[in-house]
Structure formats: C-alpha cells, structure tokens
Amino acid sequence: MFVCGEKMKRILLALRLFFILIIIPAGISPDASAATELKIRRISLYFENRRPETTVQRNTADLKAFADIAFTGSGLLEGYWEVNGRVLSRVSQHLQGSGSITLQTPKDPPMPAFDPGTQIVKFIIVYPSTSLPVPSILYFVVPEGSPYNLLDIRVFSPRNGASVAYAPLKFTWERARETAHFLVGFYSRPGSKPLFSAYINDTEYLLPESVLRQLFRPGQKYYWKVICFDEKYNIICENDPQGFSFRK
C-alpha cells in the first residue's frame, strides 16, 4: 500500500511538473480562467418540426428556426441569422459556465416567405471564432398564399383578469374586416383543450346558464378567445386568450 501511495504521489508530482513546465509555456494553460474561454462545441439547426427541412405556405408569418449551441467556458457570443445571404437579426449574448443554449429566430422581422421556392437559413457565429463548418437548413415556400395577414381582434368585455358574478355572462368583441363568422372558445388553461365553444355570427355571446352550471365553477380561472372567419371560413383574425373568473 505504502509503495502504491508513494508511486501515486510521484506520478501526480510528475503530472503537475508536466503541466507547469510544458503545458503553460505552450500556451495551453491549466489556469482556471483560461479553462473558461468560450468555445463552441456543436451547432445544430432545425425548424419547429425538429427537422432541417420544412414546407410552408407563402406569407407564413410564424415560421421559426432554432439553433442549439453547445459550448464550454464563458464569454460573449456574437452571431447572426441569415436567410439567403440576407442578415435577419443579430445575436449578442453572454454565455457562462459551459452547457448549451437554444436560440430562436425573432418574431420581428419574420422569416421571409413571400418568394416561392427554396430558402436557406444559416446561423453564423462571429465570436468566438470557430473552425466548425456553418450548418444550414432549408424551407420551401409554396406559391399560394394567404390573402390576409392575421390580425389581432379587440375584445371588449369581460376585461382581462375580471372577476364576475356567477351568472350567464356576456362576451363582446369588435367586428374586424370582412368577418362573417366567429368562434369563441373557453379554456381552463391557455393552449389546452377547450371546455366549450360556440359558432356565432354576432359580436357578442351570452354564455347559456345550462352550460355555465355544467362546466364552470366559481373561484376558478378560465380563458376565452375569439377566432374570426370570412365567408369562406378563412381565418382572418384572433385575439390572445383573456382570463376571467366567477366570484364565489
């Protein structure tokens, strides 16, 4: 045991000397701060479908691209999103402590989708310098497009977050553009399956008492949202979900 321990100490001493005499002068410093110099280990680009390729309709406004960047060390990451050689947006973000980060193309400006055909997306890292090849992903824009840009619709009552009496409640909103029909949905959580919905032609809806008693409970928070359609049932506007609750 003693011999082994001595041997181990000698090995460790030799290793330490190796680091101090060889590695440091060679610029490969074991210094803790040098160990944290920002380095990019891996870049992976993809769309929401997790694939490097997608097909979208013309004038799609919600196309998103993502970059998973694995890194070691700390420093300022600088880079930019590029579509067909056009810089879309710049990224300047401090990264610290090794790990990975997911970057997303911004909502504004949207990914260009008015030119039909194939478009190529890249994320180019300016700093730190890296020898990794620049990856790319591509999307195909189908020529046909929506006649509309989706609009927000204004809702009037109940106001967002309102607490109201437990009784049939009237929901009102504006009529935007050439709206012919509305669909109002009620949810227990934004994005969840609707508790209840109604197709209507008017800009107001009175929640029926029978539905109220069956599905809604005082004290619980609910959300409602309006989607509007033109005569051909094209969706032309919608609103963000609004919260409301019935008083106990």
């Binding site: 979208v56 669909l183 049932y233 094209n234 919608e238």
Partner: peptide, 18 residues
C-alpha cells in the same frame, strides 16, 4: 383553400379541436 389557410396558420388546432 380555407382549410389550407387554417393549416398554415396553425389555428385549425383551435378550430377543429373546438
């Protein structure tokens, strides 16, 4: 065409789910 628009806008989730 309306269905296609809805698919594109990813709002058909809400519509048909409703």
């Amino acid at each position: 065409s309306s269905l296609r628009y809805m698919r594109r806008l990813k709002i058909s989730v809400a519509f048909f789910a409703l």
